[in-house]
Simulated assay, not measured.
Amino acid sequence: MRLGSLARIGALVLRHVYLLRGSWPRVLELVYWPTVQMILWGFITVFLVGHSSWVAQASGVLISAVLLWDVLFRGQLGVSLVFMEEMWSRNLGHLFVSPLRPLELVAALLAMSLIRTVIGVGGAALIAIPLFEYSIFDIGLPLIAFFTNLIVMGWSIGLLVSGVVLRYGLGAEGMAWFVVFALQPLSGVYYPIAILPEWLQSVAFFLPSSHVFEGMRAVLFEHRFRTDLLANAVLLNMAYLGIGAGAFLAYFRVARVRGQLLHVGE
């Protein structure tokens, strides 16, 4: 290979090194996935070592956990992706030449998130019935409470992520895919919160998702609906939804003042 070729290759590599150096979300994303996978499966292993018969005690507990987790993930992604599609198409400026108000945009994002989540998770839940002979709908009315709390938590995260992307540009769009997974090990999706170290249990208490998944296991294992866990999740979600919407609107005001709405795109 000639010296000129090496120089061109080096120049292109250097360009992407500069991109990494100037964008902390990109660097964070590189470290993020291996770390989260290691922590999550580490806790799953620790739990199953001492509870090998746990899965057999309640048929479909892992399927329920996967489907409910996807409600949170799809709820968040539904807000973030719909918003970023407007950025990718350079349509934000056009939208706000119209009489559209920021709160109306927020309402539309939440509505689209709900539609996408119902289609995605609902389809998967229906496929699980003939495939695994398990229906998550057998949970009954508590399923409505679990679904509502998880999607509202997803909305809160989605609005916050959308605001960050609006503020820092599409270099931060990777956050839409990985931020919510940082909460998965602390949410007790596949194991009880009690398996976590005590200091992490204190952190998990402030996540609505941890109360939802503890409530799910109470229904499946103990056949009782924990209203105390529901109340905790609702109160936390009210606070987080207010924070998420407030942060998005604050970032939006800054972007409008700086003229960023007309200078976003791919």
Rank of each mutant, 00 (worst) to 15 (best):
Y134K: 01
H94P: 00
G163V: 05
I129Y: 00
N149R: 07
G169D: 04
I139P: 01
V180W: 13
G154N: 06
L114G: 00
W155L: 09
D70F: 12
H94G: 12
Y191M: 04
W177C: 01
R90C: 11
L72M: 14
W177S: 14
F181W: 15
P102G: 09
A124F: 08
R90T: 15
G171C: 00
E104Q: 13
I157C: 11
E86G: 12
A111S: 09
I129P: 01
Q184H: 03
T148E: 10
A124N: 03
I157Y: 04
P130Q: 09
W69C: 02
Q76R: 06
Y134E: 01
P130H: 06
M84R: 08
M112N: 12
W177R: 14
R74P: 00
G75W: 03
Q184Y: 14
I144T: 13
A182M: 14
I115W: 11
P102K: 08
L68F: 09
V97M: 02
S162M: 14
V71E: 07
V189K: 05
L81C: 03
N91M: 12
G123C: 05
F83H: 04
A125I: 00
V164S: 06
G93I: 14
G120C: 03
F178G: 12
L110P: 05
L114H: 01
F137T: 00
L131E: 04
P192V: 03
L68C: 10
V79R: 07
L160S: 06
G140Q: 07
F181S: 15
F96G: 05
E85M: 08
F147E: 11
S162N: 11
S162K: 10
L143M: 06
S156L: 13
R90F: 09
